[in-house]
Each structure stands twice: as C-alpha cells, then as structure tokens.
Design a protein around this nucleic acid. Structure first.
Length: 120
DNA sequence: GGGCTGACCTACT
DNA sequence: CAGTAGGCCAGCC
C-alpha cells in the first residue's frame, strides 16, 4: 500500500528529528540547513529544516540561530528584525561575521574540540 | 484540484 | 564569478 499522503504523525517525527539535531548543536557552532537535514537522516531536504525551525515552538528554546544557509549567511531578509536577532545571538556566542558571512568550516561542530584545545 | 512560494542545496554553464 | 536549472517537500491560496 502506497501512502501518497503522509500522516501528520510522520511529519511530526521528521520535525522532531530535525529539532533534535538542532538542539544538539553546541554553543558557538554553526551548521547549514543541508547538514542538519543530513544529520537528521533526511538528505536532500534542507527546505524541510527551514520549515521545521519556523514551526518550532518557542517553549522548546531551540538554538535556531545556529543554523544558516550553505553560504554561511543568514537566510533572512537583510536588515530585517529576525536577521538582526540571529546576528545578535550568534555574536553573543562568539561567532564572528566576516563580510556578513560566517566561516562554516571554522565554526563547524567537529572543530569545536580543536578550538577548545588550540583556540580559534 | 492545481499552482506558487519558501529560514535550501548541488551542479552546471 | 554570477546566473540558471533541477531536485526536494510542505503549506497556503
């Protein structure tokens, strides 16, 4: 039997995985949407990550600001309230913006240990 | 029912 | 280096 219409429960399960991955991003680290999707077991569904973050309730306190696009830039409209919000939160965690973009490699979670031992 | 939009990505030209 | 094309999928009109 082929379910053409996925049950809401399945969608919620996918969202839950995405939220879990995002919640697991350490402070001061940054991931892009595609990477989050891949870690959540949903390769090729970066857009779903964006929607999941948008639907995430505030009570969850997800570090949504640690998720940016593949170019290391904030995917919100430049100058917008949310844009500045995310920028503020990231800078508060020690994430540096270079020419309006973040060095994803430098702020990758895998390098968190390196930064902790050797510094930035 | 169909079509457009969107907190996207990769690859190619 | 910038622009285009194809892929992906859920919500909303």
């Amino acid at each position: 039997m082929s379910n053409k219409t996925p049950n809401p429960t399945d969608n919620e399960d996918r969202y839950r995985r995405i939220w879990d991955v995002v919640a697991g991003i350490p402070a001061g680290c940054v991931l892009n949407y595609g990477e989050v999707a891949r870690l959540a077991g949903l390769p090729g569904r970066a857009r779903l990550v964006g929607r999941a973050l948008g639907l995430a309730p505030r009570s969850m306190r997800l570090p949504w600001h640690r998720v940016v696009n593949a170019q290391g830039q904030i995917s919100f409209k430049p100058g917008g309230a949310k844009y500045r919000r995310q920028c503020e939160l990231l800078e508060a965690e020690g994430v540096a913006f270079v020419d309006g973009a973040i060095d994803l490699e430098a702020h990758a979670p895998s390098r968190a240990l390196d930064r902790m031992l050797w510094g930035p």
